[in-house]
Amino acid sequence: MIEKYLEKIPVKELYDDLFKPGMKRAGEALETVLDGANLILLPLKLLNSKSRVYFQKNLNQYSDKLNKAENLNPTQVPQYVGLPIIDKLTYLDENELAETFINLLTKASFEETLSLVHPAYISILNRLSVDEAKILFHFKNQSRIPFIDIYIHRYIENIKKPDFFDKKGVKSKAQIKQMIDYSTQDKQSTSLKAAWNLTGIENQVELLFPKNIDIYIENLELNGLISFERKLHSKSDEVHYDKLINEDYKEVKDKIESSLSEFEKTEFEAELDIRKCFIEFTELGRGFLLACIKEIE
């Protein structure tokens, strides 16, 4: 039934109108894909004026990217890559997320870059938001993203610290024994995570929904693009860490410290433990950046 209806749609005229002069490379690269698209709903979508506007804008951007890579050898885009991307380009507006799909389609259009295209990247792109694409574009040339975690740390002591422990002067035998017993006791170290994954990204990148930054970071990790290093940090990032502690999250730090000072009044002794960490891109993440985020060099 649907096939009979599609036969009445002026598919050739639609495509001829879309592929204007100067878009020869784009038309040749997508020839196999568009033949396959005739069997699905692309021609129907292109009859919708809004979808057609989106598709034309995205197609123009794709064509421009192809034309800039004059030194590469073009190839026809495989259908397993092209069909799902072509469908996306009918409703994605001009933003970073649309560009990720266009970049992947561009890499699939040349013999030299086709090997960069992994089928998993399409499913990952389908699970990313515009803001997450913005984050990836912002950090595409950085090897790591510094961040801090803030813990409340305390030692649980069975023997209370003697009042005379830090005072100068001669100590009695009994006092010396108390000092030794206090110093050599087994102390139980306890840390409570108070704030975490404080990257400052929401202050560096113009996000649509900056309050969702924790969701964005977790989603990038769940999709295998990033991992967290919490035991090591680079000394070269000290300036960045200082900004995170004393500017970006100073208010957060001060509020936690203020709460601790209230606890100390009731003999609950604890201290702030700020840990310097960083996010790094996984092997999958670095491949994703090459295929979907970075331009062809």
Rank of each mutant, 00 (worst) to 15 (best):
S49W: 07
K276P: 08
E264C: 12
F278Y: 15
T100M: 15
Y121Q: 09
K255H: 13
H153E: 12
N38A: 13
M1T: 10
V53D: 11
E280Y: 13
K294I: 02
R230L: 10
R230H: 08
L222V: 11
I150V: 07
I40G: 12
Y15K: 10
N95Y: 06
G224P: 06
N246W: 05
Y121M: 05
G27T: 04
F137C: 04
D16P: 09
D17E: 15
T32E: 10
E202G: 06
I86P: 03
I102M: 09
V33T: 07
L244Y: 06
I201S: 01
E238Q: 13
T266L: 15
T100I: 07
I213R: 04
Y182H: 09
D149P: 04
D237C: 04
N58Y: 00
T199M: 06
Y91S: 07
E70R: 11
K294R: 15
E257R: 11
S258T: 08
F165N: 04
N197K: 14
I176Q: 03
E264W: 10
K243D: 09
G200K: 02
S123D: 12
T90P: 02
P146V: 02
Y15F: 11
S123I: 07
L39P: 05
T90D: 07
R52I: 00
K57Y: 11
N71E: 14
S258I: 05
E238H: 11
P146E: 06
G27I: 09
Y151S: 05
K88V: 10
D163L: 13
F164C: 03
I293R: 01
D186Q: 15
Q56K: 13
E283F: 14
T282P: 10
T100Q: 08
L89T: 07
I86V: 14
G27E: 15
I124S: 09
E70Q: 15
I145N: 04
F101T: 06
I217R: 03
L260K: 01
E3N: 14
